[in-house]
């Protein structure tokens, strides 16, 4: 586990609370994206990120820019570093060289920055990682109450709205162990959304699910994208990428091999390695 016995970050004061992120779709997704593109509204900037595990270099200079409202899908064989890469965005993994900026905040050794970034980035894990000793509702309200210091009433209200949004309002008082895998993952999505993040990271969200439950989670993610959420998704789900992604990225051995729109990526891949990978999964 390796817990630093006294992590001082919790004692630092944190900044102004954010406005309630309006999730209703008044503008269309396209309109908003044009606006953000023109305003240079970037959420994630990663420049030449390099990371070593001991002597082994797992990220060899990866660069990525993600604009507000974009959906970026990353694909690649296991060991390509794609999960490691997105985990650097919320400081679950450290990096040795390069630069990462989330919503204008530089990710460095500064604990206040790390805290601030983690509040703006939501993450959904392959293994759900719900807290088994808390009810579904408590899972979702835990962070808003203890990090954003919301009142229990406000947190509960937001949590119920999110549960309705992901379609499992009636499970609010149940424990994670009583839910199916698909339901648990949807709770995990609601839990990440409760902090009103600027960007959502998905690390192979459907890989641990039985086939019949993959669809319900993908539908939830598609709705999220349609509502304008900025998303970076590591997945093997080609259908999802084709329908929803603005860009598809192929990573292999720690570098980005190819980056293109879904149409170009799947129909006219330019790199040999991409073609080989696609032939295995399509």
């Amino acid at each position: 586990m390796g817990v630093l016995l006294f992590d001082v970050s919790g004692f630092s004061t944190f900044g102004k609370s954010l406005d309630f992120f309006d999730l209703t779709t008044k503008d269309t997704k396209e309109e908003r994206k044009e606006e953000s593109m023109s305003m240079q509204d970037v959420v994630i900037v990663a420049e030449n990120v390099q990371k070593w595990y001991g002597k082994f270099q797992v990220l060899r200079g990866v660069s990525l820019t993600v604009h507000r409202g974009e959906v970026v899908v990353i694909m690649g064989p296991s060991g390509s570093g794609k999960s490691t890469f997105i985990r650097t965005f919320n400081a679950l993994e450290e990096y040795q060289q390069g630069r990462i900026e989330i919503d204008g905040i530089v990710l460095s050794d500064d604990l206040r920055n790390i805290d601030a970034v983690r509040r703006e980035v939501g993450m959904v894990f392959q293994q759900f990682n719900l807290f088994p000793h808390l009810t579904v509702l408590d899972n979702i309200t835990l962070a808003p109450i203890w990090v954003r210091k919301w009142s229990k009433a406000k947190a509960n209200e937001v949590a119920m709205q999110l549960l309705e949004r992901v379609g499992i309002l009636e499970q609010a008082q149940k424990y994670p162990g009583q839910l199916s895998g698909g339901q648990q993952q949807r709770v995990a999505i609601a839990r990440a959304l409760a902090m009103q993040p600027k960007v959502m990271l998905f690390d192979e969200p459907t890989s641990a699910l039985d086939p019949e439950m993959v669809r319900e989670v993908l539908e939830t993610m598609k709705k999220l994208a349609a509502d304008g959420m900025t998303m970076v998704v590591v997945t093997h789900e080609v259908g999802f990428a084709r329908e929803v992604a603005d860009r598809v990225i192929f990573m292999d051995t720690g570098v980005i091999v190819e980056e293109a729109t879904p149409t170009n990526f799947f129909q006219n891949p330019t790199q040999e390695r991409t073609r080989k990978f696609l032939s295995q999964i399509l």
Partner: peptide, 20 residues
């Protein structure tokens, strides 16, 4: 630069020294 009292690496070393 980042203030040293919030620097993750500095705090780690400081904690070691304080505990010793």
């Amino acid at each position: 630069m980042t203030h040293f009292w919030r620097n993750r690496k500095f705090l780690s070393i400081a904690a070691q020294l304080i505990s010793v």
